[in-house]
Simulated assay, not measured.
Amino acid sequence: MLLIGLYALVAGGVVGLAGAGMLRLLRGRSILVHVLVLLTVTVLAVVVGVATVARAMFLSPHDLWVVLVTVSASAVISLAVGAVFGSRLAASAVWAQAARDRERRLEAGRRELVAWVSHDLRTPLAGLRAMAEALEDRIIDDPATVAEYHRRIRVESDRMAQLVDDLFELSRIHAGALRLVPTTVPLRDIVSDAIAAVAPLAAGRRIRLVAADSGWPSVRAGERELARVVSNLLVNSVRYTPEDGTVHIAAGHERDSVWLAVSDTCGGIPEQDLERVFDVAFRGERARTPGAAGSGGGGGLGLAIVRGLVEAHGGRVDVRNTVRGCQFEVRLPVPTGRS
């Protein structure tokens, strides 16, 4: 028995050392490759050990063949089961890595968001405090200047209120607390209301808002959320379109989706920024920087909110450059059974 154990140990040890060397050479490969190599080495060590011991026991050729066939069949089954397990383990590892990468991106986005919001709040708060102190100390008493200070205080207060509202909406989306109440919503009515709300901003910059005359379908969506999507897209285009430019809104219906497109004459977005315009707090380069557009800007949250609300409806939003600017397109699915 001692000699048989020694034979089995030596045979298995040789295979094990060879497998260890193989694993070292393949250390940069996927986890599935490592699992398969490990299983192969284990099964092969058993087969070699059994074969060596069988020969040492001077079994008859028939008995030796039976042993080898039995062990080989077991090895094949073990390898097959191990391959299935290894593929699932590899898929789980890929999913876990993707989840970790997504968490890192979200964390980086949160840090960037905090930095942007801190900047966007610090500047107007400093101005508000300075104007309030000037009014309180009666440093200024000219009625026109006092009225201008009051106007600027109101404007900055509205801007900060909008920023806080954007943050609240974004937190609801990311926390999964958004609860949609889908109804049949006519897109023409939503767009008309959004255009009326954005008209003063557009008029101040001599930007024409043009809506298509026809092709306006209805869509099954949350009315408040869809109105927020359209409003954010229009405000974004108006803010970053140069004076005397044009913002065009159109919509249509296809077999399985309803689409809404907002096109502007902003001059386009750099190609390297197209995939990032919907990121939280992303503002891009000159063409879409608030200071360049003279808009006063926001927190860089508008398009991120658009993407979150559209995805909550099961749709998608994309952006592409056109000849004179860019086009944002929202696509929402049509429920099964509806035309």
Rank of each mutant, 00 (worst) to 15 (best):
I4H: 09
I4E: 11
G5R: 03
L17H: 04
G19F: 10
R24V: 09
L26Y: 10
T40Q: 05
T42E: 13
L44N: 02
V46Y: 12
G49V: 02
T52Y: 03
A54M: 09
L59W: 07
L59T: 05
S60T: 11
H62T: 13
D63I: 14
L64N: 01
T70W: 06
S78E: 08
A80P: 00
A83F: 09
S87F: 14
A96L: 11
A96I: 07
Q97D: 13
A99W: 09
R100L: 12
E103D: 11
G109R: 03
L113R: 01
V114I: 14
V114Y: 12
W116N: 08
S118D: 11
H119P: 00
D120Q: 11
R122Y: 15
G127Y: 06
R129F: 15
L135K: 02
R138M: 13
R138F: 15
D142H: 12
T145R: 07
V146R: 03
R159S: 15
M160R: 03
M160G: 02
V164F: 14
D166W: 04
A175D: 14
R179Y: 10
R188E: 08
D189Q: 09
A194P: 06
A197S: 09
P200D: 10
P200M: 12
G204P: 05
G204C: 10
A211Q: 09
D213V: 07
V219D: 00
E223Q: 12
V230T: 01
V230G: 01
N236P: 02
S237E: 13
Y240W: 15
E254F: 08
R255D: 15
S257F: 14
L260P: 01
A261M: 09
V262I: 11
G268A: 05
E271Q: 07
Q272G: 08
F278T: 00
F278W: 08
V280T: 04
R283N: 06
T289W: 12
P290H: 08
P290A: 15
G308Y: 01
L309W: 00
L309H: 00
V310E: 01
E311D: 07
V319G: 02
C326T: 01
F328W: 14
R331H: 10
P335C: 06
S339L: 14
